[in-house]
Nucleic acid binder design. Structure first.
Lengths: 252, 252
DNA sequence: CGCCGGATTGACTGAATTCAACCGTCGTGG
DNA sequence: CCACGACGGTTGAATTCAGTCAATCCGGCG
């Protein structure tokens, strides 16, 4: 694959959206080839971020949106009492920065959880392009809509699920996302700490640890440090869907 | 005011967006007069909804977005175990249905909490118009961005606030929204039940009731049935901001 | 007048947080 | 190369906040 031609120097590499394996997950989802070319025209590639490096910071002006090409990113904002609230974890193909579209400045801070390469979409140019390319405009709107839907799914979770169900949901969701990206849905590495998971799910990190142990004792999964194997996905799913709702799939 | 000329038959009345007192809160926020006229061209006015009537239902195709002209609307979706999760309460000037933009069908169900008059924006026409009117496109995007920000604020609340803080936040938020709309920020009527409030905040209705009592004993507020008077807004605010974060204001 | 739904209040229960000790791994520096 | 410290994770015990169950109240409506 083209994008592997220069693995040591990704920053100089122009991966075309058309060739990108993530196309179907990313903004270009349903663009016509010509529209895709236009979009590619504004994409910039930056030096990969190292673990812990900040992509953008809350309060900064909305200069650009960022698509993850590889790696993963944690998005969080300050909470009352000096704490933080993790708002989400983003994987390749996800688009970051949309939270800033309302106020023209980021409301969250985005940090790389591992070495992460990014495609940058300068916002002003993206907006101009949207005005010219109806398909892009539509896809962008759709993407925002899906973000809204995903956040609602999260609200639903925090609103009425117990610790056990939350962690099960979390694992299932991650599993699906990895699967969509061509990784194994049954064996993957968590790029975030227990602390981050707990914070994201509205739980104490000890609770996360205990629930992991609980799932493991039950034989549903194995966990070793950051490595998770899922043995009985259906068992986890049964936990989540007492009666059932179709999940508003993950997005951005 | 024009919109009061025919109070018994609002459905036949065309309230122009330009004359609407809610203009600054609604989609037309920063449109040029000419853009405003174009937007007005697609707005349809429907018969007012009675309490309990459904505006749209989860799963229905996204035919239109709806702006509330007067009244209030509850938006909810089914939760696991046959329950419901209340996703939000909407006041005049708010735009509903954006959750459907991701999938082209509504993910929530919207129900009038009282007699409510609505402006309907057929989605196909709105999309076409956005393509033609850059200002509208920008405002619409901004609006979606603000919805994302508001949902994040809600996630933050459900993620790490205690019952007391949640209800205080809720009251402060309502107070601000009423204020923006020209109503008293210190005395207003709740159009939703304790059950709805609790569900929305991720609390049992009894907890809501108790926290109301608690605030009342402390002298911060008075509650009688659905009528709330706030005596010490600052006390409520102090509860919410241990250290402080600026709230991502309410929206859609 | 009596019923019904919404709201309040109380007692009890339990799930999850908090506090605390402990373990294992990794990275650093002697 | 090994020792040490730091960090992340696990585990246990005690506490607490909020949920559940249940009785009662209140106002509105038939």
């Amino acid at each position: 694959m083209l994008q592997n031609a220069d693995p040591l120097n990704l920053c100089l590499l122009k991966v075309s959206c058309a060739d990108c394996t993530l196309r179907e997950l990313c903004l270009p989802r349903r663009l016509e080839p010509i529209e895709l070319t236009q979009l590619e025209g504004i994409v910039r590639h930056r030096r990969p971020l190292q673990r812990g490096e900040v992509l953008y910071r809350r309060g900064e002006p909305l200069r650009a949106l960022y698509a993850i090409h590889s790696g993963s990113v944690k998005v969080h904002m300050p909470a009352s009492g000096g704490g933080e609230q993790v708002m989400g974890f983003h994987l390749p193909g996800n688009l970051l920065g949309l939270d800033g579209c309302g106020t023209d400045s980021y409301t969250c801070t985005a940090i790389a959880l591992e070495t992460t390469s990014i495609c940058e979409l300068p916002y002003a140019r993206l907006e101009s392009l949207c005005a010219l390319v109806p398909g892009l405009n539509r896809e962008f709107r759709r993407l925002m809509g899906r973000v809204i839907g995903a956040e609602q799914a999260m609200l639903l979770m925090l609103g009425n699920k117990k610790a056990e169900e939350r962690l099960a949901s979390f694992l299932i969701h991650l599993s699906r996302r990895y699967c969509e990206r061509g990784f194994s849905p049954l064996r993957f590495n968590l790029s975030m700490s227990r602390h981050d998971i707990g914070n994201y799910l509205g739980l104490a990190l000890e609770t996360v640890s205990r629930q992991f142990a609980h799932f493991q004792e039950a034989g549903w999964i194995s966990v070793d440090r950051r490595e998770v194997s899922i043995h009985q996905l259906d068992a986890l799913e049964k936990l989540v869907t007492h009666t059932l709702e179709e999940e508003t799939g993950n997005i951005a």
